[in-house]
Nucleic acid binder design. Structure first.
Length: 572
RNA sequence: CGAGGUGUAGCGCAGUUUGGUAGCGCGUUUGGUUCGGGACCAAAAGGUCGCAGGUUCAAAUCCUGUCACCUCGACCA
């Protein structure tokens, strides 16, 4: 199409509120328009980009046997009460009442809807496994939006849900999705996106990964190891531990349900996050239970005292303010009503669980320290830091980076199928709850992240696979008859070859035209000008400057077509 | 939720201290001259100064309240 017909506008000046480069470029280029806090209209340019991202996602989801569905955006609260999340989730979940006074919610994720749909259908083990997915609007009433499309309240998301009869099958499929995700990011032109172990937070479940685009403007801190492939979200890597002797207890799992960030933990313990605190782990005599205590670094306490404070089950009556404080059980919420310290076999780690007086639900404040079973050990616990010890390989090779989360995958387990009573008849005739996995990708955030990763001072540099157009024709002096004729022919030829072309034939100065082209970020630029035509040539360059050629007029179309197809092939 | 900041034309801003005609640049419209990195000249359109109340002869400006937005935290698939 002609650029003059494109109903967007480009701006020389950056809006005052912009905080990161991609946001500034997307505002200046007319990609997005804010409507409210964290709510945006996507322009035709952005819609073309996200449509291509969605197409890639669809192809990859279909390739791993996903079946596309469409869940409702607005749902009755009854559905969310079944899973318990109507009450357990905070105000990110937008609740409202319909005309008859019934509680409703806007979908922020669709485990309930997926389970609701599947539970009446998949009643035999023969129907498993299967995966259903959708690409749809989500609404989360985020307390703080940021960075244009990076963090918003309303957004488009691909969310997928798989159902399995065994944990092994879930783990097998989890790996399949893991690889599909890597293909999706590679095809969108950001192969640098990496998967990191993450905290599963409110989703429940045990194993999860986040796909991170490493960039200084990211919202998450990622912990990585130079020596091995250990990498995790800081939230899931609170227990980078080293013993007083310098020995390290390997951390085989770094994620656990209800894990809190080290900051939260430290806040709970009244210590500074940078201050080392001491965790003491021991096995009770003749039992298989392990006990862990987190101690403030300035506390001096011996094991006998500790055993008095901590028993596998501590009853409220046994807790005095002194003992709780010493043991780190007392926090902003006051004395807990009960504290249980448990060794979780499946995690090979230790959790302690406190139920607070002011908390309606169990309040998890522990984290696991995976370690060899056996002797009493003392380990220091600190926030992961540059130069710290890697919990996997044990070398002092930890470094951190910031990252934008562009996707995530979870092994959910039976949280939803149990609470929502989804069952199937197994081969032995018994009734069982299926095991779930869920997998998300934020489409708009991915588009913005690609912009953040691939740009220069003048605009985005869109990868060919998701670029709004493949080729941008700049007709300098379109009032020149020959320029007009050659441009028209080139446009027609390319378009007929299936190339998507944006054609700028406006009577504006060259600089103005090039600046607009830079902001549109189309990967191939073709300049038709009187100067070039005098020599019988057309200029062809790539947005990233790796290609800069002059081609005879009659060869230009074929050259451009071949180049575009070559680039598309690289990203297919 | 805590701390700080900002609301004046589509965008960027000045004007508020010390109350007195609503301003500038970009953009937009029209005409003309230009033409390879955001050209120039001339003319024009566009504003309940976030909203409400108050003080005053007079409020963008002072007072009170309120709303919205932004930044940093807290929080968060």
């Amino acid at each position: 199409m002609k650029l003059k017909n494109l109903i967007t506008k480009r701006y020389k000046e950056t809006p005052a509120d912009c905080v990161i480069a991609s946001q500034a470029l997307m505002m200046r280029g007319g990609y997005i328009k804010p409507v409210g806090n964290g709510i945006f209209t996507l322009s035709p340019i952005t819609k073309r980009i996200t449509a291509k991202i969605e197409k890639i996602i669809r192809e990859e989801m279909d390739r791993i046997d996903g079946q596309e569905v469409l869940f409702p955006v607005a749902m009755p609260a009854t559905l969310w009460r079944e899973s318990g999340r109507f009450d357990s989730i905070g105000s990110e979940l937008l609740r409202f009442k319909d005309r008859s006074g019934q509680d409703m919610v806007l979908g922020m994720t669709h485990e309930e809807a997926a389970t609701h749909y599947a539970r009446d259908i998949a009643d035999s083990y023969t129907q498993y496994p299967f995966m259903i997915y959708q690409i749809q609007t989500k609404f989360r009433d985020e307390p703080r939006c940021r960075g244009g499309l990076i963090r918003v309240r309303e957004f488009t998301m691909k969310d997928a849900y798989s159902f399995h009869t065994t944990q092994e099958d879930l783990e097998r499929y989890y790996q399949v999705v893991y690889e599909a995700y890597n293909r999706i990011y590679a095809r969108c032109g950001v192969p640098e996106v990496i998967a990191v172990a993450s905290d599963s937070g409110m989703m429940g479940g045990k194993v999860s990964h986040e796909y991170m685009l490493l960039t200084p403007v990211g919202e998450d801190t990622i912990v990585l190891c130079r020596e091995c492939d250990y990498r995790a979200n800081m939230e899931a890597a609170p227990c980078i531990a080293h013993g007083e002797t310098g020995e390290v207890a390997p951390l085989e799992k770094v994620s656990t349900p209800g894990t809190k960030t080290i900051e939260t933990l430290c806040e709970f313990l009244h210590i500074q996050p940078t201050q080392t605190c001491k965790a003491v782990v021991y096995q009770e005599n003749l039992t298989d239970r392990y006990v862990v205590a987190f101690l403030r670094g300035d506390l001096d306490i011996n094991e006998t005292k500790l055993r008095n404070y901590l028993k596998a089950e501590i009853h409220p009556a046994e807790i005095t303010e002194d003992s709780a404080l010493s043991a780190g059980f007392i926090g902003p919420r006051g004395l807990p009503e009960s504290v249980r310290v448990v060794y979780d076999e499946s995690l090979r780690g230790v959790n302690w669980v406190a139920t607070g007086a002011n908390e309606p639900d169990a309040h998890y404040v522990g984290f696991n320290i995976a370690r060899e079973m056996g002797d009493v050990e003392y380990v220091d616990v600190a926030k992961a830091y540059d130069g710290g010890i890697c919990p996997v390989c044990g070398k002092k090779s930890i470094y951190t980076s910031r990252g934008i989360e562009v996707g995530n995958i979870f092994q959910l387990g039976k949280k939803y199928t149990e609470s929502m009573n989804m069952t199937y008849v197994d081969s032995d005739g018994t009734l069982k709850n299926p095991i779930m996995g869920c997998y998300g990708i934020g489409v708009g955030r991915l588009a913005a992240s690609v912009c953040e990763a691939h740009r220069d001072d003048y605009g985005p540099i869109w990868p060919m696979s998701i670029a709004p157009w493949h080729v941008h024709i700049c007709s300098l002096r379109a009032d020149n008859e020959e320029v007009a004729a050659v441009s028209q022919k080139l446009y027609d030829t390319l378009t007929q070859s299936g190339i998507e072309v944006i054609w700028d034939d406006r009577p504006v100065s060259a600089g103005f035209m090039f600046s607009d082209a830079d902001l549109l970020g189309v990967p191939v630029r073709v300049v038709v000008s009187p100067k070039g035509l005098k020599n019988g040539t057309i200029e062809i360059s790539s947005r990233d400057k790796s290609l800069q050629e002059k081609k005879p007029v009659e060869e230009a179309a074929a050259f451009v077509t071949a180049y575009v197809q070559e680039e598309l092939k690289k990203l297919s």
